[in-house]
Design a protein around this nucleic acid. Sequence first.
DNA 1: GGCATCCTGACC
DNA 2: GGTCAGGATGCC
Length: 278
Amino acid sequence: MPELPEVETIRRQAQRLLVGQTIKQVEVKRASIVRGDLGMLAGRKISAVRRFAKLLVLDFSGGWSLAIHLKMTGRLAVFANPGGFFPHTHVVFTLSNGKFLTFSDMRRFGYVQMVRTDKVADLKFVKSLAKEPLSELTLSDFASLLSRSHRPIKLLLLDQTKIAGIGNIYDCEALWTARIHPLRPANSLIQSEIKRLLAAIEMVLTEGIKRGGASDNTYRDLHGEKGHYQDYFKVYQQQGKPCKRDGTPIKRIALGGRGTFFCPRCQPERPALRKKAS
DNA sequence: GGCATCCTGACC
DNA sequence: GGTCAGGATGCC
């Protein structure tokens, strides 16, 4: 589902397509995914698009904002005609250019929430977020974060209150890139591994943005199109296929109730012991 | 900190 | 029919 690179892709597209547009009409088809009164947005102009980890925020004239969380299957997309809308479309905004901005979500885990622009930073979810890897988190932040937890590194990276924006896909891909086993206790990583892992996280997120996100399954961008990062997966949902580094079959285990993919050979459960000089 | 839970659909 | 799905939270 949408992680940092996917939401950032949508943010950049929205910046170009939506800023300057005025909301002509709002239609809520399913009230349960809406928090607050979307009718307040009619007649308002979109002035900015922001992202907080995986949360997208549209700012409107008059001090109102709309926080949008896509969770697992949410999609924010612009269509020229109502005939093209995705299934499970719950909210439709008619724009001043005659197009339609839609929010759809098959599993209905996502939401759209009205909030005063000056209160966005006070949203419980936003306040709980840790630093972002591509813009805020330093190596010493990361090292200190890891040293304070004995949880499996894979789970720590998924915790938005520890490091913001990573989901299951980029988690697995970063661990493979850094050659670190997902079950390794966070505080067992040595300095060289910590450095490698942070570089790997930055690399896979940057690559994800460059490829327009990963559409392994349901993700679509603001144009309703798939991303391409799924064509570059090294381990995610590649179980049984040969590791791109050493040919060993990729393994899948369950960790914290979700799929975890890794190479059992180049991501060893224990760091390689230094060979004794003989 | 670990686990169930909100939903629907795809796939084996 | 059973399993799995990229998130976040609320409960123990």
